[in-house]
Design a protein around this nucleic acid. Structure first.
Length: 429
RNA sequence: GGCCACGUGGCGGAGUGGUGACGCAACGGUCUGCAAAACCGUGUACCCCGGUUCAAUUCCGGGCGUGGCCUCCA
């Protein structure tokens, strides 16, 4: 199965061949190497932050499936040094370390609830200061950076094709270069340092939000390439699209700033995950309550039909969609098709549905546990006894009474489903 | 202002130079004491204007709209 990925560098979809598979490295030593820009830990992550985390988790899972679980090295950094962190810590009168530790712990919990696997390595910027210094020294020694007014600055003209990734003209960069504000050299040297340490001078995939394309990623490329005299930093650059909330840009001033933590109070993590994956990762996504409701219903259906199937079988159609630049909407359409076949009694389709959902990081709990999420807060014994009473009334053809009981249950949010096999119920949202 | 995305049926959302992806909603039917659920069925969509073509939603040019980056922001 060939994997195709859209490369921002070339603006085309390309067949993916990891670097280690291009040379004559012994089979056992080959690794797929991926770096994704992680959070700056100063506050709860918002739903926009969740997009790259979920998207690249799907890619991580797919790569593991294609190359083997132990063959993929996924590095997602933690930026725990930053002006915002300093300001926030001062504001709360706590130490920087306390703030970053707490925020990081929260982030890990959020991400776990979203069904994301831990990356192979989660390096912290503060633990890579030595590498940053080394990089800067190399850049200065190589004439790619210079010292001015007490700062080390990158010499933009030093890289002939600076701006290639973001397609910005070099002249504009040179004109814009210069000392504009005091402080540390803020050229995102941390990502160059951490990717170097954990993945090497060059690697396969670099991911992140489209908003990081410039200047963040452009700077990373320039530093890494100039420091190591390398023709490229990552083979493939992947960028996920932006997220809006209910049709508007998410911002604190509009009051529509949504944290992952807040959403998790009302919605299962898998609902958020599926909702994110319903849109292709490069498209802009509009985050809505309606969408989450629809996602929840879809998952209810999948859980009911395949929740308890244990299998490793994966649908060819789903795999084909995912290997075509992570076309998750197409994959979901294939899942609907499998669901329909499974409903008709196709046992293989049912297995493929369960296996494929798990490949995408969904269907991670039992059908019973999933269902229980909605009935939390409802007294099961009371509901069951009311249902018995209703069925007795129905048997006695006392339909006024049976309908009354049904209405009573409805006010509790309980919806009944009668079938030949008896009456089942669920809590409507 | 410069650069870059996006604009598909009531809604969400893939995709394609030529047979109406898929989901939700809606409507009709089967089932049901009646409903609900389930199942079956029903849809002549591709922002506007030009161009290329036998044929454009799909390619090209222009316009309009929305959003992003250019400055901390995913």
């Amino acid at each position: 199965m060939d994997l195709k990925l859209y490369n921002t560098l070339t603006r085309t979809k390309e067949a993916f061949v990891p670097l280690d598979w291009q040379g004559d490295l012994p089979e056992a030593e080959r690794r797929v190497r991926m770096y994704v820009c992680g959070p700056t830990v100063y506050d709860f992550a918002h739903i926009g932050n969740a997009r790259p985390v979920i998207v690249f988790d799907v890619l991580f899972r797919l790569l593991r499936h294609l190359y083997g679980d132990d063959r993929v090295k996924y590095v997602r950094n933690i930026t725990d040094v930053d002006d915002k962190i300093n300001a926030r810590a001062a504001e709360r009168d706590i130490t920087i370390r306390d703030l970053t530790e707490t925020t990081y712990a929260n982030f890990r919990e959020d991400v776990k609830a979203l069904g994301c696997l831990p990356p192979t390595v989660e390096p912290r910027a503060t633990e890579h200061i030595a590498e940053m210094k080394l990089l800067i020294e190399r850049l200065v020694a190589g004439g790619h950076a210079y010292v001015a007014e007490g700062h080390v600055l990158f010499g933009v003209p030093s890289m002939a094709d600076y701006g290639r990734l973001s397609r910005r003209p070099l002249d504009e960069m040179i004109a814009g270069a210069g000392i504009t504000q005091p402080g540390r050299p803020g050229w995102h040297i941390e990502c160059s340092a951490m990717s170097w340490k954990h993945l090497g001078e060059t690697f396969d995939i670099h991911g992140g939000g489209i908003d990081l394309l410039f200047p963040h990623h452009e700077n990373e490329v320039a530093q890494t390439r100039c420091a190591f005299d390398a023709p490229f930093m990552a083979q493939v650059w992947m960028h996920n699209g932006f997220l809006q909330v209910e049709g508007e840009k998410m911002s604190k001033s509009l009051g529509n700033f949504v944290t992952i933590r807040e959403l998790l109070a009302d919605w299962p993590g898998e609902v958020l995950r599926l909702n994110m994956l319903r849109t292709h990762y490069r498209q802009p996504v509009d985050w809505t309550v309606k969408g989450m409701e629809e996602s929840w219903r879809t998952l209810d259906d999948w859980y009911a039909i395949a929740g308890d199937i244990e299998t490793q079988v994966i649908s060819g159609a789903v795999l084909e969609a995912l290997t075509d630049d992570l076309n998750t909407p197409q994959a979901i359409a294939a899942l609907h098709g499998l669901r329909s076949l499974a409903q008709g009694g196709d046992a293989l389709a049912r297995e493929e549905l369960a296996g494929s959902l798990r490949l995408m990081g969904l269907l991670q709990e039992s059908a019973a546990a999933w269902k229980a999420r909605k009935s939390a807060g409802v007294d099961t014994a009371t509901v069951e006894s009311l249902i018995s009473a209703r069925n007795a009334a129905r048997k006695a053809k006392n339909f006024a009474e049976s309908d009354r009981i049904r209405d009573e249950l409805a006010t509790m949010g309980v919806v009944l489903k009668d079938s030949k096999d008896g009456t089942t119920w669920e809590v409507a949202r």
